[in-house]
């Protein structure tokens, strides 16, 4: 369950940014979690609600984008969608595949609420 420690680090990171911006609370957090990032979005959401207790992001909604994995063939250079690390090139059947996308794990943005006129 590494999702719990990850949820805590997300809470910590957005809390710091939100305080810097003078936020009263955080209403939304946009995450990008690639399908090959090794993170279960559902499990992360579950842990997040516990991790965010008593912080500015206690009521924040998590919006998670999950980009598909993309592999590049080391033999013929073809780019193709992959869902596992053990992909095979659909053209030349090579197994020398390098993952070029789908491993991203990024906090894209946060939506904060602040008092009008402050």
């Amino acid at each position: 369950m590494h999702e719990m420690s990850i949820a805590l680090s997300i809470v910590e990171a957005v809390e710091a940014k939100a305080r810097e911006e003078g936020a009263e609370r955080i209403s939304g957090i946009d995450l990008v979690i690639g399908k090959l990032a090794g993170i279960e979005p559902e499990s992360l959401k579950f842990c997040f609600s516990a991790a965010a207790k008593g912080t500015l992001s206690e009521e924040a909604l998590l919006a998670i984008q999950e980009p598909e994995g993309v592999g590049a063939c080391g033999e013929c250079g073809k780019l193709f969608p992959v869902s596992f690390y053990y992909a095979e090139c659909p053209d030349c059947r090579s197994l020398r595949i390098t993952i070029v996308s789908g491993e991203e794990f990024v906090i894209q943005s946060i939506t904060i609420e602040e008092q009008e006129g402050e």
Binding site: S9, I10, A13, V14, V106, I107, S109, E113
Partner: peptide, 22 residues
């Protein structure tokens, strides 16, 4: 929270790697 006041919300770009600290 004082619900009588108008709240202003805005989005801040972060582009932060979650595992960056580690």
């Amino acid at each position: 929270r004082d619900h009588h006041h108008e709240k202003k919300s805005r989005t801040i770009a972060l582009e932060l790697d979650v595992l960056q600290k580690n």
